[in-house]
């Protein structure tokens, strides 16, 4: 009410929320939406039959076109452009939290194997295994050293300056 202290029922064009959108704007926006629909369909079909190759870009391109279309609908059909900022804020908050939802879930599902270098065996068994491995290596060490690292046949591969 603090912000609504002006007198009532002014349906003047200038006020937010009561903006009458010109028919020309509505029709132009509709035209743009149809054009973008055709564009995304054509791109999708071309991608499918191999005329163009967007590859990994096909998802961002399709989503980008859809985003532009959704923005057009929100701005003009839903009149967000002429509306109070609170409504736009609410709308964008929903998008932000959708992105948060996806990104944080993806942090799990997309990175399941990241640090999974450790085997499932307990640490004490692993240490024991490593100890065995070390002992075995040490036992094999003389045999390794007896073998020359570069065999005679390999010398042809090494270019000398």
């Amino acid at each position: 009410m603090a912000e609504n202290a002006h007198t009532s029922s002014g349906h003047d064009d200038g006020h937010h929320g009561h903006h009458i959108i010109p028919l020309g704007v509505l029709l132009k926006v509709f035209g743009a939406l149809i054009f973008l629909t055709i564009l995304t369909v054509v791109l999708g079909l071309w991608e499918r039959d191999g005329t163009i190759h967007l590859g990994a870009l096909s998802v961002p391109v399709a989503l980008g076109i859809a985003g532009v279309k959704a923005t057009l609908v929100a701005m003009f059909f839903m009149a967000l452009k002429y509306d109070t900022r609170v409504n736009a804020l609410a709308f964008s908050l929903s998008i932000v939290f959708l992105v948060v939802f996806f990104v944080f879930t993806f942090l799990d599902t997309g990175f399941r194997d990241t640090f999974n270098e450790w085997p499932d065996t307990p640490i004490d068994e692993r240490e024991l295994q490593e100890l065995r491995l070390q002992e075995r290596n040490e036992a094999l060490q003389p045999a390794f050293e007896a073998q020359p690292l570069v065999l005679p046949g390999d010398t042809a591969l090494i270019r000398t300056p």
Binding site: T37, G44, E47, A62
Partner: peptide
């Protein structure tokens, strides 16, 4: 409408 705008390419195209 907006939801369909996103559903259509995600489901039908890519």
């Amino acid at each position: 409408d907006v939801i369909w705008i996103f559903l259509f390419p995600l489901m039908y195209l890519i």
